[in-house]
Write a protein that binds this DNA or RNA. Structure first.
Lengths: 346, 346
DNA sequence: CTGAAAGCGCTTACAG
DNA sequence: CTGAAAGCGCTTACAG
């Protein structure tokens, strides 16, 4: 059976096709009785407005595109749990706004910047990725040049084109260190890259440093080992760290740049026969689901992904309506569990 | 700047608009030089074919829709990790096939069945949901009646309309029990719903029973406590279970219908001062990421989500091309870790 | 309140 | 190998 068109409805209702279109879009221009009749027939025929035709005519798609890209050094079968959480909230917020969501995993090398808005597949883009945006800053500029509406998840940065929404990683790192200092810890190590290639991690590291400096803790000999956000890298980084010291007592606390790193770190510590937090405190970042079930449960920093998704979608929609929008920095929240030694049940 | 159209390109290339269209779609009908010239101009202008126009004309959308729905009794901010894994693999497989993916979280009550294909937003649907399909069997029938191409994730079932791809939960449950029996366990309990409302769980339960019967284990007094797939429900179900017995030695092994249930179960056992697997073995199902980092690491059943995604997308694409497609049952895989007492490091 | 008409930007028979 | 033309199914000025 061929799909019904607005002409079919018009014929059956004894009105013009224009009237059908108006009735179906609840135009106040059409007589209530006519409208109800048309709507009933549409319902009976299971008629749905053809989106392609409608979008072509209206010159927009009523859909948003979510471009997810991860550090290609990561195993791509394993999506960062934090992203997943964002994905879920963006999906929800998009649906709530009456838009469709096109989801796409992008390789950093692909020609992703061009595909979506230009072809009218989406009215705007959300860019979600870890790591340094410098790698594809050129692409962002191009996006902007083309007049594409896009919003980036990440720290606002004057040097980057476009507007962004991000979580205050500096503050998060600061909060973590303040908390550990308050618990009496003084000898710190940091696991995770702390360079411009990983701006989120670097900000966490810097925030940490600030708290230590404020507390007059000597950080000149503070150890830092690179690790990307995986359990395995965390494990290996912790092993390297442990190999560098003579005795576990040389360290009070290990600040990990992410929960995944912390999970691996705890594994490595345990495998050497040490106990967390008895021998050493470990904290993570992200509050991924695993962190709650870790042993011991991980003290970490929570980012409100639900709010983030709503903000991302809400502001992108504003941009599409040509409402100017500012960068946004969200406040993280410290989640205190057992791994730092703060609670009794260790 | 207004977006370039194929007419603009035609004008600049000094050819007709038809030729531009042909050149851009690599039609062999057009002279190589003409084609190259047209393509170069398109590149210079950053021209992209308008999808709405193209789709309208071709009468298909080159996109697939993924409809995710969960048991509404679940907290909807928490997506089942197994789904997430499926989502990732479906996204990838869809992209590999050159299709776009529309993602949507559905409420079981919504009018989801009608929206997608009828409006030409998608060429086909993938339905992904836990629980019983009987609730919305009517909607599936309607989908079929309308000639919508759709594929369901779940156990093939003669009573359900449409074709499905699923994992053999009965076999998974059977494998788990066989393994535990081989380890010498005889006194079993099952945590998770085992009724028609949760067909996946029921199949796991039944498979378990079969192995026990084959091994001549008396199952007449086997305890079973309902739980949906959350950590909290697992915790509460385990507490109920523990309250029903006089001493932990009355139980050898607890088979949990999902990893999330198992996580809660282990927490409950530990909180009572017992040790897993020393005092009692616990196994899960799904092999979600958490299971590996659990303490002790969880013995569980892995479902190959990567393959599942490829199969789902591949077969849906076949259906769209009117190639007949059969139901598929995938083989699960037992993942042996410490929680069952099989490995030394307990 | 309603209808006839134009046009969104393509693809693809049809004709040469 | 190329072009003129039709038409996909809508929405929305325009005219009444």
């Amino acid at each position: 059976m061929k799909k019904a068109t607005s002409f079919d409805i018009a014929h059956m209702a004894g009105v013009s096709q224009s009237t059908v279109s108006r009735a179906l879009s609840d135009s106040p221009l059409v007589n209530k009785e006519t409208r109800d009749r048309v709507k009933q027939i549409a319902l009976d025929l299971n008629y749905k407005v053809d989106k392609n035709a409608s979008n072509l005519r209206k010159q927009h798609s009523q859909t948003l595109a979510l471009l997810l890209f991860e550090d290609p050094t990561n195993d791509d079968s394993l999506i960062n749990p934090f992203f997943i959480s964002m994905l879920a909230s963006i999906t929800k917020a998009t649906a709530d706004a009456g838009y469709d969501l096109l989801v796409s995993f992008q390789n950093l090398n692909d020609d992703w910047h061009a595909e979506y808005e230009d072809s009218n597949k989406a009215d705007g883009l959300i860019l979600l990725g870890y790591g340094s945006y410098t790698d594809y800053e050129y692409k962002l500029s191009q996006l902007e040049e083309q007049g594409t509406r896009f919003l980036r998840w990440g720290a606002p940065d004057e040097n980057h084109p476009g507007v962004s929404i991000g979580s205050d990683n500096f503050l998060g790192g600061y909060m973590v260190a303040r908390h550990l200092i308050g618990l009496g810890h003084r000898k710190f190590a940091f696991l995770g890259e702390a360079n411009v290639g990983a701006p989120e991690f670097l900000a966490r590291y810097d925030g940490c440093q600030k708290a230590l400096n404020e507390a007059k803790v000597d950080t000149s000999s503070m150890l830092q080992i690179d690790a990307i956000s995986t359990d395995l890298d965390g494990f290996e980084a912790a092993e390297k760290l442990l190999a560098k010291i003579d005795h576990i007592s040389e360290l009070d606390a290990i600040v990990c740049a992410s929960d995944l790193i912390a999970m691996g770190c705890i594994r490595a510590i345990k495998s050497k026969g040490y106990k967390v937090p008895h021998d050493i405190a470990v904290v993570g970042y992200d509050n991924i689901q695993v962190s709650e079930f870790a042993s011991p449960p991980l003290t970490t920093v929570h980012q409100n992904t639900l709010l983030a998704g709503e903000l991302l979608v809400g502001n992108l929609l504003k941009m599409i309506k040509n409402v100017p929008v500012d960068d946004l920095l969200m406040q993280p929240e410290l989640i205190i569990r057992q791994s730092c030694g703060a609670t009794s049940q260790c």
